[in-house]
Amino acid sequence: MAEIRYDVPNEQWPVHPEKATLEGRNKFVGFWTFLAGETVLFASLFATYLALKDQVPSQEHLVAADLYHLELAFVMTMFLLTSSLTSVFAVYHMRNNNFGKMQLWLGITVLLGAGFLALEIYEFVEYVKLGHTFRSSAFGSAFYFLIGTHGFHVIVGLIWITLLIIRNANRGLSVYTAAKVNTASLYWHFIDVVWVFIFTIVYLLGVL
C-alpha cells in the first residue's frame, strides 16, 4: 500500500488516486460487484411491482393512472440527474487534487439529493391523504416498497456523503480518502440510474 499522505504535491498526485493502492482497487472491484447484486435486488422489486400494479381490493381504490403526476416525477428526476452530474464534478476535482472544490461539489450533491427526498416525501404524503397507503392494497404495498427502497438508498447515500465531507474536512485528500469518495459517488450514480428506470417503468407506464 502506498504511503498515506495528505497534501500530496500536484505533480505526484496519481491520475486515478482512487485506484492507486491495492485497497483502492479492491474497493473498486468489490463495489461494482455489490452494485451487480443491487441491480438484481431492484430487478426483483420491479418485477414485484409490475405483478401487483393496479391490484386493489375494490373499485373505489385509486390506481396508478389516477395517482401519478408526471410533472412532479419530472422535477424529481431533474433534481437527481443534476446531483449525479455534480458528483461527477466532485470526482473530477478529486482527480485533480483540488480538495476544496471537491468538498463544495459534494455539498451541492447532498443539497440536490435532499431536495429530491423532500419532493418524494411530499408525494407520499399526498397519496396517503388520498387513501393510497402501504396497507391499503397490494398495489400500494408494491409501490411504496419499490419507491421506498429507492428512497432509503437516497437517505443512505446522503448520510454517507455528508459523513465523508465532515470526516475528511480536517484530513484533506489522500489516496485513502480518494477511494472512499469515489465509492460513494459510484453508489450515487447507481441510485440515479435506478431512478431513471423508476421514472419510465413506474411513472411513464403508469399514466399511459
Binding site: 401487483l52 402501504f134 391499503s136 397490494a138
Partner: peptide, 15 residues
C-alpha cells in the same frame, strides 16, 4: 400489514 401475498387485497402468493 402490507398485502403482497394477501389475495383479498390484490396480492399474489406466486410471487
Amino acid at each position: 400489514g402490507s398485502n403482497f401475498f394477501i389475495v383479498e387485497a390484490g396480492g399474489n402468493t406466486i410471487i
